[in-house]
C-alpha cells in the first residue's frame, strides 16, 4: 500500500481528509480543547477580576444585603444595581468578588491535592512495579485497604477536630485519599512495560534503573498520568466542596462550597435568593464539565480505538 495517485479530490473527500488530518494529531481533540478552555476561563476570571474589581467587597457588611443580579428584582422589590452586577448575599458580601476569590481557591485545592496525590502515586507505583516482592505486597495491600475507606467520613472527623483549616491543609488531607488509584494504575503499567522489548534493550545497553524508569518508561506513561491526574482533580474538588458545604472547610477564606453552605444556612432557598446559591453552583458545574471534557479527550488521545472519524 505504498503507491499513491494524485487524483483530484472532490469536495467531500477534501473535507474527509481534513477530518482525518485532525485525527492524525490526537492532541487537536475538540473535547480536550473545550475542556481546557472552560478551566482556563475560570483561572482567567480569577486573574482579571483581581485587577478590575474591588476585592474588599468579600467582607461581611461591605455592601447592601440581598441585592439581586442586574435586571432582576428581589422579594422586597429592590432591583439590581451596576455596583453589584450579580447581586449580594445575606451578609452584605458582593457575589462577584466572592466568585473572583472563591472559584480559583476551589480549583487550587483540587489541583494541589491531586498533585500531591499523583506524586505519591507515581513514587509508590514505580517502587511496587519495579522492586516487586515484599515492597510490592505492602504497597498493593496498603492501596487496596485505603480504597475501601470512605474519605468523607475520615475527613469530617479530622476537619471538625481541627476547627479552622487553611486551604493547603485541606489539600494535604484530601491528598491522603487520592493516591491509591494512580498507584495501582502506574504499577500495572510498569509491570507490563518491564517485559517490553525496549526496556530489555535498555537493560542490555547497561542503563541504570533510574534511566529506565524516567527516560524509557515515563514518557510513554504521560497520557495515563495526565488522565489519572485530571480524574483525581475531579475527586479532590468533589471532596473539598462536600466538606465546605457541610461547613467544615476553611472558615475565613471564601470558596464556592462555603458560599453555598452560607446560602443554605441563611435560608436562601425559601427566600428565593437563587443567585446566592445558584451562581456558585453554576461555576462548579462549569469546572466539572471542563474536567470531564478534558478526561474524555485524554481518553481518546491515549486510546486510539475510541477515536472516530466523525
Amino acid at each position: 500500500m505504498t503507491s499513491q495517485d494524485n487524483v483530484p479530490l472532490t469536495r467531500a473527500q477534501i473535507r474527509q481528509a481534513k477530518r482525518i488530518k485532525r485525527f492524525d494529531n490526537p492532541w487537536m481533540n475538540p473535547k480536550l480543547i473545550w475542556g481546557a478552555g472552560l478551566l482556563l476561563g475560570i483561572i482567567f476570571l480569577g486573574i482579571i477580576g483581581r485587577f478590575i474589581w474591588d476585592l474588599d467587597l468579600v467582607f461581611t457588611g461591605s455592601s447592601p444585603l440581598k441585592l439581586p443580579p442586574l435586571g432582576f428584582e428581589n422579594l422586597r422589590g429592590q432591583s439590581g444595581v451596576i455596583d453589584h452586577p450579580i447581586g449580594t448575599d445575606g451578609g452584605g458580601r458582593d457575589l462577584l468578588a466572592l466568585i473572583i476569590v472563591g472559584a480559583p481557591n476551589t480549583l487550587f485545592v483540587g489541583l494541589l491535592a491531586s498533585f500531591i496525590g499523583m506524586s505519591i502515586g507515581i513514587f509508590l507505583g514505580f517502587s511496587a512495579g519495579f522492586l516487586g516482592g515484599r515492597t510490592d505486597d505492602v504497597i498493593r495491600v496498603g492501596a487496596d485497604v485505603m480504597i475501601t475507606i470512605p474519605p468523607l467520613l475520615i475527613l469530617v472527623v479530622f476537619q471538625s477536630a481541627f476547627g479552622d483549616v487553611t486551604l493547603t491543609m485541606m489539600a494535604l488531607l484530601i491528598a491522603g485519599f487520592v493516591w491509591q488509584s494512580p498507584t495501582r494504575l502506574i504499577r500495572a503499567q510498569v509491570l507490563s512495560m518491564k517485559q517490553s522489548g525496549y526496556v530489555q534493550m535498555a537493560q542490555l545497553s547497561g542503563a541504570s534503573t533510574g534511566h529506565i524508569m524516567f527516560r524509557e518508561m515515563m514518557p510513554n506513561l504521560v497520557p495515563y498520568l495526565f488522565g489519572s491526574f485530571i480524574a483525581s482533580v475531579t475527586t479532590s474538588i468533589v471532596t473539598a466542596v462536600g466538606l465546605e458545604v457541610l461547613g467544615l472547610g476553611p472558615q475565613r477564606i471564601p470558596t464556592l462550597g462555603r458560599t453555598i453552605y452560607e446560602a443554605i444556612n441563611a435560608g436562601a432557598l425559601i427566600q428565593n435568593l437563587w443567585w446566592w446559591w445558584g451562581i456558585p453552583t453554576l461555576l462548579l458545574a462549569v469546572i466539572f464539565i471542563g474536567l470531564l471534557l478534558i478526561n474524555l479527550g485524554l481518553d481518546e488521545v491515549s486510546n486510539p480505538r475510541l477515536r472516530k472519524l466523525s
Partner: peptide
Amino acid sequence: FPTPTGVVQA
C-alpha cells in the same frame, strides 16, 4: 483507502 496524504490504492 483515503488518508490525509491522499488516496492509497491497496
